[in-house]
Simulated assay, not measured.
Amino acid sequence: MQIIGHGPAPGSGRSISARLRGFACLAATVLLTLAAPPAPARSPVPDADHAAAVEQEVLGILSYTRWPAEPPELRLCVVGSADYADDLLAGATQASGRPVRSRRLTPGDPRIGTECDVVYLGALGEAERRPLYAQLVDRPILSISERDASCTVGSMFCLQIEDTQIWFQVNLDSVARSRVRINPKVLQLGRRRTPAP
């Protein structure tokens, strides 16, 4: 086996044992580096720009949604720890002039299934998500999730929030099982909007 490296030129006086010690030190350094615990991942920092953009995205989705009986005001419930719902909680108005009244509810609150037209989900554990989704089945409730990268179970819309853009995925199964109707234009838009490579 031939090892090619950038050691000293022949005749430089460096012995083979000195070279082996150098390789041993290098190998030890690499092993210590690999064994060190990884640096903790940094969570995105919520800021006013993201909260305002999320509000606009949610209001856009609401404008393409129709309820069996259109309420004079939409009741939006924020459930779980949501990083970007501050502007929604401050109150909003749709372009049509219909107000959106928002409030926080805990994951186990029975009012979620009866007093919410829209449910905006933040961070929830699996044990909290499953019974919550059971409350939404066969009800005219639009569900939007802030933290659901896979978007395969539960929420109808899953916001994907990155440093420079906000886009959404659509869970067509959840849409089909819901009693609200979504304009096909927004469904096509959701399928097309994918993160930049």
Rank of each mutant, 00 (worst) to 15 (best):
R66S: 08
E57N: 08
A41L: 12
I61V: 10
L59Q: 00
F23A: 12
L76E: 03
S12D: 13
G80N: 07
S17A: 15
P46A: 09
S12C: 11
R21V: 06
G11A: 04
P46K: 08
S17N: 14
A51Y: 02
P44H: 03
P37D: 05
L59K: 00
S63H: 04
A39R: 14
E55L: 02
P44A: 06
P38R: 01
G80W: 04
S17T: 15
P37G: 03
P37T: 04
A18T: 13
V30P: 02
A51E: 02
L32V: 11
F23D: 09
A18F: 07
R19P: 07
P40L: 05
L59Y: 00
R14K: 15
A41S: 09
P44G: 07
P44L: 09
Y64E: 02
L26V: 13
P72I: 06
A51C: 03
G13W: 15
Q56G: 07
P37L: 02
L59N: 00
P71R: 09
T29I: 06
R14Q: 15
A24S: 12
Y64T: 01
F23K: 13
G11T: 03
I61L: 12
P38N: 00
G11F: 05
V30I: 09
L31T: 12
R42V: 08
A53P: 04
A41I: 12
L31M: 12
D49I: 06
S12G: 13
V45F: 07
I61K: 07
G11E: 03
S12K: 13
H50S: 13
